[in-house]
Design a protein around this nucleic acid. Structure first.
Lengths: 133, 133
DNA sequence: CATATAGTTGCATTATAGTGCAACTGTGCA
DNA sequence: TGCACAGTTGCACTATAATGCAACTATATG
């Protein structure tokens, strides 16, 4: 299911969107895997939006996704060395508006809710839906 | 004229196009500066097309351009360290279809026509316009 | 001054990409 | 078996981006 052929333009295109860059940056910095509801809580974006962006990242060859019960865990693909260089570049990017910093703070807090390293709760701890913009 | 504020999404967006990636890759690999007509000869793309892509790369903060008589020389911007990392990533990208290899060969040949390190001839050695579909 | 040349840009067209809504699938639990 | 919930996707809409043509600017040269 993983592309052997890396398309450089597709790779950069995948990172040319703020939401997708927030996702990748979060995974790069934390070196973690995350499921959709955890990303929803961290980025405060609707699940259908993130789901679609995750699909694009997967198709670009940046993410691999693994289903586990109700949850789907997404993690960075390390395989070709140029991807590691790309991740290093992402890590070195400036964070002028502190967007990534806030995302990371919420992600870290959210990860505390894991039990045995696995996600067990839904988005926003079962509260109402996202009211972000 | 150079942006102090680097917009990561704009940066990746700039590289999300094949033509622009060919331009950047050529400059990254050769560590050279080039004017439009030299790029036209190397990539075999119409000048108006490359001119527009060069503008996009300039606005993204990747290129700086300097006019010299009739010619405009374009070179990579080295300033923020994350750009150097980005260039390293570009250098590490695969070249499956040998597109960059061909571009480089034509570029090297074209650079032989320089006199005193400066461009002195127009596109395609003064021949007819590009016929590259 | 006329002409050639290096490069740029306005316009119209076409293709592609992001978004929200709502309906949908699939899994686990009472 | 019915329900709640994690996640996905079809549809319509809107915005953005790439392209080709042709007209344009600016610089050098005879």
């Amino acid at each position: 299911m993983q592309l052997v052929t890396i398309q450089p333009e597709t790779l950069f295109q995948a990172l040319a969107d703020e939401t997708r860059l927030r996702i990748i940056r979060l995974l790069v910095v934390t070196a973690e895997e995350a499921c959709l509801c955890e990303l929803v809580d961290s980025l405060r974006e609707p699940s259908y939006k993130l789901s679609r962006h995750l699909k694009i990242l997967r198709q670009a060859g940046l993410l691999s996704s693994q289903k586990e019960g109700r949850w789907v865990y997404h993690r960075l693909v390390p395989k070709p060395s140029c991807l590691e260089m790309l991740y290093a570049t992402v890590r070195a990017l400036p964070d002028r508006d502190r967007v990534y910093q806030v995302d990371l703070a919420r992600f870290t807090e959210r990860m505390c809710l894991r039990e045995g390293g696995r996600c067990r709760v839904g988005g926003l701890s079962g509260d109402a839906k996202v009211e972000n913009k």
